[in-house]
Lab assay of single mutants.
Amino acid sequence: ELELEEVDLYRMNSQDKLGLTVCYRTDDEDDIGIYISEIDPNSIAAKDGRIREGDRIIQINGIEVQNREEAVALLTSEENKNFSLLIARP
Rank of each mutant, 00 (worst) to 15 (best):
L2Q: 08
L2F: 15
E3K: 10
E3R: 06
L4Y: 11
L4M: 15
E5R: 07
E6H: 06
E6R: 13
D8H: 15
L9M: 05
L9R: 00
Y10I: 13
R11C: 02
R11W: 02
M12T: 13
M12G: 12
M12W: 13
N13D: 07
N13Q: 12
N13T: 07
S14E: 07
S14Q: 04
Q15I: 12
D16M: 09
D16I: 05
D16R: 06
L18S: 01
L18F: 02
L20T: 02
T21W: 05
T21D: 02
T21A: 10
V22Y: 08
V22W: 12
C23N: 08
C23R: 13
C23I: 15
C23K: 08
Y24N: 07
Y24E: 15
Y24K: 03
Y24R: 06
Y24S: 12
R25A: 08
R25F: 04
T26P: 12
D28R: 13
D28M: 06
D28T: 09
E29Q: 10
D30I: 08
D31T: 14
D31F: 14
D31V: 08
D31Y: 06
I32A: 03
G33V: 14
G33K: 03
G33S: 10
G33E: 14
I34K: 00
Y35C: 14
Y35T: 12
Y35I: 12
I36V: 07
I36S: 01
S37M: 10
S37V: 10
E38W: 05
E38G: 04
I39T: 02
I39G: 01
D40H: 13
P41E: 07
P41K: 09
P41W: 08
N42Q: 07
N42M: 10
S43F: 04
S43T: 04
S43V: 01
S43K: 03
I44A: 07
I44S: 04
I44V: 10
A45L: 02
A45H: 01
K47W: 05
D48L: 02
D48A: 08
D48K: 03
G49H: 09
R50G: 04
R52P: 00
R52G: 04
R52Q: 10
E53L: 08
E53F: 06
E53H: 06
R56W: 06
R56F: 13
R56M: 14
I57N: 00
I57W: 00
I57C: 08
I57M: 09
Q59S: 13
I60P: 00
I60H: 01
I60G: 00
N61W: 01
N61Q: 08
N61A: 02
G62C: 15
G62H: 10
G62T: 05
I63N: 08
I63R: 09
I63T: 13
E64D: 10
E64Q: 05
E64A: 04
E64F: 01
V65Y: 05
V65H: 04
V65E: 03
V65A: 15
V65W: 05
Q66A: 15
Q66H: 14
Q66P: 14
N67M: 15
N67L: 08
R68P: 06
R68D: 13
R68H: 15
R68S: 07
E69M: 13
E70T: 05
A71F: 05
A71S: 05
V72Y: 09
L74C: 04
L74Q: 14
L74W: 09
L74S: 08
L75H: 01
L75I: 10
L75E: 01
T76K: 15
T76M: 14
T76N: 11
S77Y: 07
S77V: 11
E78C: 08
E78Q: 11
E78W: 05
E79N: 12
N80E: 07
N80Q: 11
N80S: 12
N80H: 14
K81D: 06
K81Y: 04
K81P: 09
K81C: 07
N82M: 04
F83Y: 06
F83A: 10
F83N: 03
S84W: 04
S84P: 04
S84V: 06
L85I: 07
L85W: 00
L85P: 00
L86R: 12
L86D: 05
A88M: 03
A88V: 03
A88E: 15
R89A: 04
R89N: 03
R89T: 10
P90V: 03
P90S: 03
P90M: 14
P90I: 04
